[in-house]
């Protein structure tokens, strides 16, 4: 695990937003091609914006949320999602649950159940203890 040298400064926020916009376009095109799992992978990859800037965080969450909600077949998703994504996915699921929005919560709980079955309680503990990835 690489040591993260502090968080990105606030004046880098614009650069982060640009990156997130780029990612958003990529996800949209993947979703149009009916590749929801690829879209989710893209959303999870390099997704933690490494910043405490709320604007960046919510921009990023909107993108991940879009990819999360596009998942229809949860079992099928897990069949092609590698275990290294599990911890960060769990972290986003808790972010989703914290919104209190009904359809989001339903979707997150549905994935949460399957993810816990696969990755165990250890995965939840890692996402609770994680101080590096800000989502």
């Amino acid at each position: 695990m690489a040591r993260v040298e502090g968080f990105v400064e606030a004046d880098n926020a614009e650069a982060i937003i640009t990156r997130i916009e780029h990612k958003s376009r990529k996800i949209e095109s993947l979703l149009k091609q009916y590749k929801p799992v690829e879209a989710l992978k893209t959303a999870l990859e390099g997704s933690p914006p490494m910043t405490r800037d709320e604007r960046c965080k919510s921009a990023n969450w909107i993108v991940v949320h879009r990819a999360l909600m596009a998942i229809k077949d949860v079992e099928g998703m897990f069949a092609s999602l590698d275990p290294e994504y599990y911890d960060i996915l769990m972290k986003y699921l808790y972010r989703g649950l914290s919104t209190g929005d009904r359809p989001t919560c339903e979707q997150c709980l549905r994935i949460h159940e399957k993810l816990t079955e696969r990755a165990g309680l250890g995965c939840i503990l890692r996402c609770l203890a994680d101080t590096v990835n800000t989502v």
Binding site: M1, P83, D87, A119, G120, L121, G122, C123, L125, R126
Partner: peptide, 9 residues
Amino acid sequence: QNVVLRNLP
């Protein structure tokens, strides 16, 4: 190396 556990710590 690190090994990820399925269960409690």
